[in-house]
């Protein structure tokens, strides 16, 4: 009897502890320090970027630097906002870690193939879109799967990445298929190669980058969603968002934006970069 009472005591104190922790957890979620001011005084913007996504943000093993469209955009925006001496510093994020990190203040902004969606807009603020992608499919060459309808069957398994909205999008168009979520694109691609799923679904730009590197695989079925990428900033940082939008506008006007898009997407077969720029 004594033991049971002790055990119950422990359980209740555990519950109390959790309640206290979780309540202080949700309270402090939005901080009120101005990201723009801190960025200006440090002359640095901390960007969250992907390191596993060909064309957008990919780690170069030779010099341990991340390279890609998102990274170049981040650099250009930083220079536009803080002047030529402004520094962009990069932190690697995954689809799963990027929003918590932004809300925590570990990073100032996310520029990591992130689609502007209503669900996300509840958690973060977005800049104007800087790239137009659309969700598509990648399959092994010779696969019978031609488009997303072919996957809408019981027993089909499709690969995606945790935290990416491609999961929800896909479930809408092919509700019967089962989605396996992996940690990042590199893992998802390996899983596709290992036969863990029939197709890999995410945005066309990312898929085309992968297909260019992996000759046995192809992108099929065109796009079945519109995925405008935006730069995400924590809630309550309106001045920062405005400044980013202003910088984006200037980059589009002075031709810098066009140059960066062409640099990364100009030679990608099957990709209409004019469409992406809109």
């Amino acid at each position: 009897m004594k033991k049971i009472i002790r055990y119950l005591g422990l359980l209740t104190s555990l519950c109390a502890l959790v309640m206290i922790l979780s309540s202080c957890g949700s309270k402090a979620a939005t901080s009120n320090e101005s990201v723009l001011k801190t960025a200006e005084s440090n002359n640095t913007i901390v960007w969250g970027v992907k390191a596993d996504t060909k064309l957008f943000g990919l780690m170069d093993v030779k010099d341990s630097k991340i390279k890609g469209f998102d990274v170049d955009m981040a650099r250009a925006i930083t220079k536009q906002m803080l002047g030529p001496s402004g520094k962009a510093s990069f932190i690697q994020v995954s689809s799963q870690t990027r929003i918590p990190l932004l809300k925590n203040g570990n990073i100032d902004a996310i520029i990591a193939t992130m689609t502007i969606t209503p669900a996300r807009e509840k958690a973060v603020d977005f800049s104007d879109h800087y790239f137009n992608a659309g969700q598509s499919l990648m399959v092994k060459k010779g696969s019978p799967i031609k488009n997303v309808k072919d996957l809408d069957k019981k027993g089909t398994q499709v690969l995606a990445v945790t935290g990416a909205n491609s999961v929800a999008n896909f479930q809408k168009v092919a509700p019967k298929a089962k989605v396996l979520e992996l940690q990042d694109y590199a893992q998802a691609l390996q899983a596709l190669k290992s036969g863990q799923g029939e197709a890999l679904t995410t945005d066309n730009g990312i898929l085309l980058g992968m297909a260019a590197q992996n000759p046995g695989y192809q992108v099929v079925g065109g796009t079945f969603t519109k995925e405008p990428y935006g730069i995400a900033v924590n809630k309550g940082q309106k001045p920062f968002v405005n400044k980013i939008n202003q910088a984006l506008q200037q980059l589009r006007e002075n031709g810098e934006y066009d140059r960066i898009v062409k640099k990364w997407f100009g030679n990608i077969a099957g990709f209409n970069y004019k469409e992406a720029e809109k």
Binding site: L21, S22, G25, S26, Q96, P100, T162, G163, L180, E181
Partner: peptide, 24 residues
């Protein structure tokens, strides 16, 4: 993607954006 408790936690955390409470 073994659909275990931790996997579900990750999925819930990244769809609700309520990271801490999901992991609690």
């Amino acid at each position: 993607a073994g659909f275990d408790l931790m996997y579900q936690g990750n999925t819930i955390a990244s769809t609700t954006f309520d990271t801490l409470n999901s992991y609690f």
